[in-house]
Design a protein around this nucleic acid. Structure first.
Lengths: 123, 123
DNA sequence: GTCGTTGCAAAGCCTTTGCAGGGAA
DNA sequence: TTCCCTGCAAAGGCTTTGCAACGAC
């Protein structure tokens, strides 16, 4: 059975307080503010556990690498700001893959990444 | 000035004969059939050169890692077959990012990845 | 006390880099 | 001859793993 540890709690708390996909370094840095001894290996191990248990979802973002976000949300897409490099979640989906599926192919899902400037960096 | 080498020619030829995004491994393997001594480092160096010179384009695909495709094509998207793991190029784009851009954000571009089964693996 | 967890360091990938020899121009 | 390129091996960066100590239950 999975035990309750301050390290894992800290990691979960980091995600709850940042409602956007996070990179390892961000998680490690923010997590250390809660549990000073927090180790890189521990973060990696817990992210893996949290993904396996369905609490987190792993994202592979172009030009941004691996990010993690809280799982269970409705289908949505992502926006990467080229200035602050943060990734944001975009609600909803207006994409119909029927028009894009090549003849003979079967589309089972899709991922969309937008990039540009976020509201904060635009000003 | 850039010189003509059999290694670089081999790499370019591999792309010309496979009209889809290729992974390092595929490029190296196919390239070695043309130039037996072809080295991994040489492939990496040439891919970098070819990207810089605008002949290739680098793609970061979810669950697939880094791929390279011939540059200069019209805007298009990608389809990954979950069975053969090959990536295909999909012509055209029916996506309008206006409906997806959050208030205050500026969208400058997008990338779409479909996944499912390709025609060959479907049968 | 049991055994899931953690920190630390070592080991594993994939990619890049240093170097001396090789080859295009 | 010049100096761009290549192969080989070592080094880098990120992620995983082995191990002994720790701590939740």
């Amino acid at each position: 059975m999975q035990r309750k540890t301050s390290q894992r709690d800290a990691i979960r708390e980091v995600f709850r307080q940042n409602d956007r996909p996070l990179a390892i370094e961000e998680i490690l840095e923010a997590g250390r503010r809660r549990v000073r001894s927090l180790n890189q290996a521990t973060v990696y191990r817990n992210l893996k556990l949290l993904v396996e248990s369905g609490w987190l979802k792993k994202i592979h973002a172009p030009e941004r690498g691996t990010l993690y976000e809280i799982a269970g949300k409705a289908h949505h897409h992502h926006f990467r700001c080229r200035r602050c490099e943060r990734m944001f979640e975009i609600e909803g989906c207006a994409f119909n893959d029927r028009h894009s599926t090549p003849p003979g192919f079967v589309t089972e899902g899709h991922e969309i990444f937008l990039f540009g400037l976020c509201a904060a960096c635009r000003s």
